[in-house]
């Protein structure tokens, strides 16, 4: 059985397991959608009060918001298996994964596919659909391709962050919470166009953790509007690749971490 088939087998089991508690699953999915929906109510209220945000309208902001919401819900569902990694290192359970003749990454992400994130996913799709109709933009093939590329790049980027967070546990034996600022905080800041933030903050999220590359730049191209930051169209199209590169680097760091792993033992 190859790695991909094994992965689908793992998540098939995980999904079936979660569906055993049907009402709990439905409530959690609704709750997840509700919580993020309420956040959007906050965004709406601010636009209602102030009219516009440095020249951006609510439907335009909604495009950034919807894209990052969809992206993060997918990444969060996929990569949450890495969350348990800190506990595995502490308990020495990671040894068990190492003796199996399969990649540790597949075994870890196969631990859990968090189905209840479907609530946030649905909420993001609704916001995106509303943004498209309010702006009278049609979803052409090229726009759809660009959005998919942005989402793919974003899923890779967030997965990379989760992998780096887990990798830090090799040295600290504790999954560090400081990374949450970049995952949850990153989603939070991507809900608005990054052009509104201070330059040093914007540059950090373009060049160090390239969140702007998987959200702001491609969405600008989707909106067909001139970038106040002055990025060229070609860059807007290629930017999401930075997310894929980020994941590749993160996986190399992970490999390095695995080589230096020393079991806590008991």
């Amino acid at each position: 059985m190859n790695e991909l088939a094994l992965y689908f087998r793992y998540i098939g089991i995980s999904i079936r397991g979660q569906l055993q508690y049907r009402s709990s699953f439905i409530l959690q999915a609704i709750g997840h959608g509700l919580m993020t929906g309420i956040e959007f109510l906050g965004v709406w209220a601010l636009f209602h009060r102030f009219g516009q945000l440095r020249g951006w309208s609510l439907p335009e902001a909604a495009m950034f918001y919807g894209t990052i919401s969809v992206t993060f819900s997918i990444a969060d569902a996929l990569a949450r298996g890495f969350d348990q990694f800190g506990n595995m290192v502490k308990g020495g359970d990671f040894d068990r994964l190492l003796v199996r003749p399969r990649s540790t990454v597949v075994q870890l992400i196969g631990q859990e596919f968090t189905l209840r994130r479907v609530g946030r996913f649905a909420q993001g799709i609704v916001v995106l659909a509303w943004a498209f109709s309010a702006l009278h933009l049609s979803l052409s093939i090229s726009t759809a391709a660009l959005l998919l590329l942005a989402i793919l790049g974003g899923v890779c980027l967030f997965s990379g962050l989760v992998v780096l967070q887990a990798t830090s546990a090799f040295w600290t034996t504790e999954s560090l919470e400081v990374w949450n600022a970049f995952t949850y905080g990153g989603v939070f800041m991507s809900q608005y166009p990054v052009a509104i933030y201070r330059p040093w903050f914007r540059q950090f999220f373009t060049f160090v953790i390239p969140l702007a590359c998987v959200n702001y730049f491609p969405v600008i191209a989707v909106l067909r509007r001139k970038d106040p930051l002055g990025s060229p169209a070609l860059f807007q199209w290629l930017a999401p690749l930075a997310g894929i590169a980020f994941l590749a680097v993160a996986l190399q760091v992970w490999k390095f971490g695995v080589r230096h792993y020393r079991s806590t033992g008991s």
Binding site: L46, G51, Q52, L53, A181
Partner: peptide, 16 residues
């Protein structure tokens, strides 16, 4: 981090 992002957002809204 969350506090800083919120403040920057409000700064932009108030500047608009």
């Amino acid at each position: 981090f969350f506090g800083l992002v919120m403040i920057m957002t409000y700064e932009s809204f108030y500047g608009s």
